[in-house]
């Protein structure tokens, strides 16, 4: 592999991890669109990322990789980066709400008495944080838990960080924030 290639691959990897902003790297995006080999690299990195994010289910199928390779061959264009798709979609789906900021939500509805025992929705959140591929085996439950923990901790931090806006939080959200270690 030439040095230039190595550098390109590194930059693609950074782009995928959002450490490079595509808008600031038009030349790289241009290359990515024109160069078939780079295109394949982008696809591969995407696949690697998805496999790493998966707790194990994706590796169950023996000819999975072969089928994906075939699909990549058949794919005429580069798949759009995920965030672009999301952004466009969320824009088209914005809808006006029925209540204003700080208006009481009480009028929207109160569900006292509604059954809260519907546990069909109980589950464990699995985040997108990359995990070692080695953990995709009998430890997949553990690794899934760890990923969910990271996502949960991020939410918890944000909650404590923004709870001051409630003007009320009652108990010092910043004390919680600094006192840190969400359960570890």
């Amino acid at each position: 592999m030439t040095n230039e290639n190595k550098d390109l691959r590194q930059r693609i990897s950074l782009l995928l991890d959002a450490e490079l902003d595509g808008r600031d790297n038009p030349v790289l995006l241009d290359k990515l669109e024109r160069d078939e080999e780079l295109k394949a690299t982008w696809q591969r990195y995407h696949l690697i990322g998805q496999v790493m994010r998966s707790p194990g289910g994706m590796l169950a199928d023996a000819d999975f990789a072969a089928r994906v390779s075939a699909l990549i061959q058949d794919e005429p264009t580069v798949m759009a980066p995920r965030w672009n798709a999301l952004r466009a979609e969320s824009t088209t789906r914005r809808k006006v709400v029925t209540f204003a900021l700080a208006a009481s939500l009480a009028s929207v509805a109160v569900l006292i008495g509604k059954s809260l025992t519907d546990n069909a929705g109980d589950f464990y959140a699995l985040s997108a944080k990359p995990q070692a591929v080695a953990s995709i085996d009998s430890n997949s439950v553990e690794s899934g838990k760890k990923m969910a923990d990271e996502q949960f901790n991020d939410y918890l931090l944000m909650h404590n960080e923004t709870a001051y806006m409630a003007g009320s939080a009652g108990m010092m959200p910043y004390v919680r924030l600094v006192s840190a270690g969400p359960d570890r």
């Binding site: 464990y124 899934g144 923004t162 939080a169």
Partner: peptide
């Protein structure tokens, strides 16, 4: 991220992209 409060207690609602179909209850 939607933040609610009743004056003393605050509640955060997060609506995230579903990353994976595999879940365990908790």
């Amino acid at each position: 991220h939607i933040l609610l409060s009743d004056g003393f207690s605050s509640v955060s609602i997060y609506i995230d992209e579903l990353m994976n179909e595999f879940f365990t209850a908790q």
